[in-house]
Design a protein around this nucleic acid. Structure first.
Length: 605
DNA sequence: CCACCAGAGCTC
DNA sequence: AGCTCTGGTGGC
């Protein structure tokens, strides 16, 4: 008699063991119908054993039947998902749910795909850093490597960059390369089938394409490797860049890690060297307190637009190029901010900026809706709070309009990207003689489309003000991106307005990211932060659960940090994930379902 | 008298 | 997380 371990998709970590009917020959990666509780579910065979489980705490039931003629999950893909389940502390079941097309999880109809498709792993794992701030140069190098090493997988943090890279490939290669769909549904199903059928030489796509079932891989290219876009924004919190790295190891493939700037982990590991510091005059720091009060009708308060900021904008417009005015909405939409440190008031529940409701005389969180009274003093520095002094993007529009000659366009973009080919073409046409685009960081993607001669950050501190440990890196990499992203002319001027111009992380903009990382890594090492430690953010399902998890971790010798503020959350930094996974495992058994499962976010770098 | 529903309970 | 069983409700 034989038995099989079956992964039943869900938030628990353990697989379930069943007796295998005599007539079924089970292969790992096959879908199988299994009884769970009162009903039946679709499970995935993880392994087959001949010895029954020893402890006998449960009564074995009979599995079957197997749903498809051949396993849907190839062995190396299964190991990737198992590894992901351990690394991101979400379990293999959650990994399967994110990696595979929906219909495979919910529909029992047999999927008729040919048998073992996975070719033997190619060669030996190698990794190669490709850090060039000139996008065109970097892509040319990457595409040459991909052409030599097929089949390949090329990953990008956003779908638009993936599309652009796909279009960038030489025609002969592009025709054999699949652009992985960002949507689910029929498109994904078709992409999945054809990719697994070996119909493509390569796949190009956004973060989700890391799960493209190519039968073998010779090369994986991860562009903008340090981008936060590789991290999923909702549970389970995966990181596609990290998964891609693991996949390259499992496949014995060449791993190309590229971008304008490396992540902390990669910098620590490879110390990549390619970079040219900006030429003199490309970066200018300006004190925003010297801003000209550009009064906007109907808005109280002022926008701090300094003379150098406006002068550089004018120069750029005179050259017939486009100027980007960047500001972090979080620093401006929040209408209560501290005069001394510049911090807006943060929501205690979710960490977003609170907005002032004048008529009700209270604060409301812009993202979760929580209400709070106005604090007497700034909760961060105890300075004087100011109310309603921060005009938003609308005031910026008025200022931009009065700066640009009336025949040039001014565009105010809020968070959404410019989507669709038609819209992009129209935008490109209307900015053919230059103009001003004002908006949040999302407008940086316009560097790929327009000839951007000037990028100005109205409040460069806004990003670095966040409490998150990555705040400085985010601020630095965004400024770095606004300096280099796009046409490759390398003659853009960057102006950073801030309260302490040219200090701290800003200084490293003059020399490059090596200087930034040297300083930043020193600080992170002292604080046991990534990339030296893994930082876990745990969200418990209830107060009781939070207390017992924290107790279990303390018993294991770890020191959870509980800021108390977002009520059910706490943090913990660990040297290894294996140890903490063992301590947490009891909270993730299927029997714990009524208590609920904690959701963990793992910060690797 | 039974269709329809929200809520409880269970999971190798 | 699903899945099914339960028991209350209400329509005719």
């Amino acid at each position: 008699m034989s038995f099989c371990d079956v992964i039943v998709p869900g938030p628990w970590w353990n697989s379930l063991t069943y007796e295998l009917p005599a007539n079924e020959s089970a292969l790992p990666g096959s879908r199988i119908s299994v009884p769970v509780g009162r009903g039946r579910r679709i499970g995935w065979i993880e392994g087959v054993t001949s010895a029954p489980p020893a402890d006998g705490k449960f009564v074995l039931r009979k599995a079957g039947p197997i749903l498809d003629p051949a396993p849907l999950l190839a062995p190396r893909m299964l190991s990737l998902l198992q590894w992901g389940g351990k690394t991101f502390l979400c379990g293999t079941g959650e990994m399967i749910q994110t990696a595979l097309p929906g219909p495979f999880l919910s529909k029992k109809t047999p999927v008729d795909l040919p048998g073992p498709q996975e070719r033997p792993a190619g060669g030996e794992y190698r990794e190669f850093p490709l850090y060039l701030q000139n996008d065109g140069e970097r892509w040319a190098r990457a595409s040459a490597e991909l052409e030599e090493n097929t089949p390949f997988l090329a990953l990008f943090p956003e779908q638009t960059s993936a599309e652009a890279f796909h279009a960038f490939l030489p025609l002969s290669l592009r025709e054999k390369t699949l652009l992985w769909p960002s949507t689910g549904g029929a498109a994904l199903l078709k992409a999945w089938r054809t990719a697994r059928g070996g119909e493509w030489t390569g796949v190009v796509g956004g973060p989700g394409a890391v799960f493209a079932p190519l039968p073998a891989l010779s090369c994986i290219f991860v562009d903008e490797e340090s981008s936060g876009g590789y991290r999923s924004y909702k549970w389970p919190y995966l990181h596609s860049r990290t998964l891609a790295g693991r996949r390259a190891r499992l496949e014995g493939a060449l791993l190309l890690l590229g971008g304008r700037i490396p992540s902390s982990r990669l910098y620590l590991r490879c110390r990549p060297k390619f970079q040219n510091p900006p030429r003199r005059g490309m970066v200018k720091f300006v004190d925003m307190k010297k801003g000209i009060a550009s009064e906007s009708p109907g808005v109280s308060g002022t926008l701090p637009l300094t003379a150098p900021f406006l002068e550089e904008t004018q120069k750029c417009l005179e050259q017939g190029r486009t100027a980007l005015w960047l500001l972090d909405r979080k620093g401006y939409a929040g209408e209560v901010a501290c005069e001394e440190c510049g911090n807006p008031v943060w929501c205690k529940a979710c960490g977003s900026v609170m907005a002032w409701e004048e008529r009700k005389g209270r604060l409301r969180c812009s993202s979760c809706g929580a209400l709070a009274p106005l604090p007497e003093v700034c909760p961060i520095c105890r300075g004087v709070l100011l109310r309603g002094k921060r005009p938003g993007l609308e005031a910026l529009y008025t200022a931009a309009r009065s700066t640009a000659p009336s025949d040039l366009p001014v565009l105010l973009k809020e968070d959404q990207n410019i989507r669709g080919k038609k819209n992009r073409r129209a935008l490109k046409a209307s900015f053919s003689k230059g103009g001003i685009v004002a908006g949040t960081r999302s407008v940086l993607s316009l560097c790929d489309l327009l000839d951007v001669g000037f990028a100005g950050w109205i409040d460069a501190d806004a990003e670095a003000r966040r409490v998150a440990f990555q705040a400085k890196f985010t601020a630095y990499s965004m400024a770095w991106e606004s300096l280099w992203r796009g046409n490759g002319k390398e003659d853009r001027v960057l102006v950073l307005q801030s309260r302490r111009p040219g200090s701290g992380w800003q200084k490293a903009l003059l020399s490059g990211w090596e200087v930034f990382w040297r300083q930043e890594l020193k600080e992170r090492k002292e604080l046991d932060l990534p990339p030296f430690f893994f930082l876990l953010e745990v969200k418990a399902p209830s107060q009781e659960s939070k207390e017992s998890i924290m107790a279990a971790l303390e018993k294991g010798g770890l020191v959870p940090m509980d800021p108390g503020d977002p009520a059910l959350r706490f943090w913990i930094s660990v040297k290894s994930l294996a140890g903490v996974a063992e301590m947490l495992a009891p909270f993730y058994s299927i029997g714990n379902s009524t208590a609920g499962f904690p959701e963990i976010s793992v910060w690797i770098d």
